[in-house]
Design a protein around this nucleic acid. Structure first.
Lengths: 146, 146
DNA sequence: ATTTGTGCAAATCGTTTGCATCTGA
DNA sequence: TCAGATGCAAACGATTTGCACAAAT
């Protein structure tokens, strides 16, 4: 191929785009149009808790054309690469949290809303050793009847 | 049919039966044939973690004739009456725990097995107050890569 | 050019529901 | 009697998959 005359696909904030793009690349994910768009929605603002359905609707609102299957794929890919963390509230609700650091959650049963609790806010002492294997992570969910 | 020569359905310990029966009555649940049979499977031995499907299969093995829908109904009824506690591990797995006391769990990701951790084994201090509403319960799941 | 992702619709899984039929109190 | 349970099959909602097509390296 002779030469590529500057891709310039985006007119969004170039800085933010680059960051997200780099984030995908660094994670070893090909920055496709839809993954980029979804990643921007997810990581643009502060930490978020999204469901697949919710992100799908949000994408539609922003005129990002993705299929629901692709949203699921992207969320799982991101989770696998530790850009997201999956949280299971009950059998019919799965959230993806953009905060992948050590922290816990309030879950408001009425509204179905999640809220982060910084790890420092809870003293988890004397964690018993698993009889076998290694601890992958510790989930703490404080269920609130609101 | 001329005569049924004695049904003799049970040769289990009559004492245990009574206990289970009383347990259902006390909870305000009509001790129907299938609820009794399921309750016996659940509460006969020590504490257990079962899935609906698992209990259903177990019932079949014991030649207890129940439909899967009834198993679900019974598990939910029991949970409502605090004879069981429901635990959500991931979006596709819901467990029912016969231990309704205060305690936490190991979850072995490979085998999909749950193991109780007595509440005393973990010091949960400084639990933050929910910004709104009242704490229904606190779930702690230690996920183990086994 | 090759590999990897995407869209769509159909398939799957666990769970729930509607309804006619039973059954325990 | 008769409210409450059950069984069955159909309905369901969330998630997944199969496959032909499109896009990234």
């Amino acid at each position: 191929m002779l030469h590529t005359p500057g891709i310039m696909r985006a007119k969004k904030a170039p800085t933010a785009d680059l960051t997200v793009l780099e984030r995908l690349r660094t994670a070893g994910l090909r920055p496709t149009r839809q993954r980029l768009a979804l990643a921007k929605l997810l990581f643009a603002q502060g930490h978020r808790h999204v469901t697949a359905e919710g992100l799908f609707n949000e994408a539609k609102e922003h005129r990002v054309d993705v299929s629901l299957a692709t949203v699921y794929n992207a969320l799982h890919d991101f989770t696998e690469k530790a850009l997201l963390r999956e949280i299971s509230i009950d059998s019919s609700r799965s959230y993806f949290d953009t905060n992948v650091g050590d922290h816990y959650h309030f879950y408001f049963e009425q509204s179905g809303r999640l809220q982060d609790i910084p790890a420092e806010r809870i003293a988890l002492a004397n964690l018993p050793e698993p009889p076998d294997g290694v601890v992958a992570r510790v989930d703490v969910i404080i269920r609130v009847k609101d």
